[in-house]
Simulated scan of single mutants.
Amino acid sequence: MVTGASDFTPSSSNSNPAQQRFDFSVNSTLRILITANQYKYCSEALRLLNEKLQMPHEITKEFARLQANRIRQPEMASSCTVAFHSVNKSKNRYTNVVPFDDNRVVLNSCKDYRLSANGYINASFISTPSPENISKFISTQGPLPHTFEDFWEMVIQYRCPVILMLTRLVDNFKTVKCGDYFQAEDGPREFGKISIVTKWLQTTETSLVLRNMEVNYKESDEPPPSVLHIQYPEWPDHGVPTDTFAVREIFKRLYNVPVNPSPIVVHCSAGIGRTGAYCTIHNTIQRILLGDMSALDLVNTISIFRSQRIGMVQTMEQYLFCYKAIVDELNDLISEFLGGSNAGRYACSARFH
């Protein structure tokens, strides 16, 4: 595996949550203003990616190569022993999507106090071996009702400032894709020893649902840390959105979130298809802005992600969508730099104290 759980340090019980407060205002304007060097990086990346998009057969071959090298279900048994342990099987939404032992998220405090549970939650640390100022992620499944408390324990323990939810609770076929672990508009919701409160709720023009939440242990005397919850319900399971606007708005909203030490939680239903696509888009754009042209090798990036969680980016359609979203965002960044007409399209501001 590329990234182990030891690379991520959870918060200690003595840490001050007030130091991780996340203040978010939807009414002010956030523009990503790039430097002259970043303009050069974006221009070069855009030229190369546009050339690639003129050769769709090459993109098809790339994804075929990814699929040919994917980890097969029988190969997972020896690498996912904790996930497949009898005490943990019921915690998996899908029996064929579970975390590897080497980079699974481990909960110090867990609702399941049985020693053999090993602090298990169906969640994986996801990153590339990039510079320190690249976001890290926790890729996880849509929580099940009996894992809600463990999910929020993970958010507190690893000081996660943002949760990105890329699914509806129930899809158009009336299939449950995720449990309702987050709606708390009518007052505090309690999950065991944890309480969550929604401070405000807003829906954007691109159908993103934004919640500013306070999450804390019920018995804690410390100020509750704030968590930004972003739901994009219009991204269909196994498919892609009709355009890239909302996904790129998410990137813009998360651009100023400090990347260390806290990972961004991303989930859909299984935590691999839509989740893998977003992580690829976000990671690639960040690396391009740092001048890392190896980021243009999406096959390599997704191969790394798949070594950390099985099946990241599930379909050819999702793979092509990654290319399109990256190209659209590079065009937008260049337009901003040149004083184009896109200035101020995205209204948000993110600040840490």
Rank of each mutant, 00 (worst) to 15 (best):
P99R: 03
V170D: 05
A343R: 10
P131C: 05
E58Y: 12
C160G: 03
F305K: 06
G192Q: 00
H57M: 10
K324F: 14
A350H: 08
L46G: 07
A347F: 05
P17E: 08
I126V: 14
I326P: 01
C322N: 05
D180C: 04
R93N: 04
I121C: 01
T301L: 13
V215F: 06
I196F: 07
A64I: 13
R65A: 12
D237Y: 01
L210V: 05
T275F: 04
S11Y: 05
L169A: 09
Q157K: 06
R274I: 02
M213I: 11
T284P: 09
V105G: 00
I310F: 13
N92Y: 06
V87P: 03
Q73P: 02
S12R: 13
C322M: 10
A270L: 04
I134W: 08
I281T: 03
A123M: 01
S307L: 11
F245I: 14
I156N: 07
V176D: 07
A18V: 14
S349M: 07
R93S: 02
R21G: 05
S303L: 06
G192F: 00
F22E: 09
I194W: 01
M1A: 14
F63N: 04
I272E: 08
V170T: 13
K177F: 02
I59R: 05
F148T: 00
N212Y: 04
K52N: 11
K91E: 02
S124W: 05
P131G: 08
H85G: 08
G273Q: 05
K52M: 15
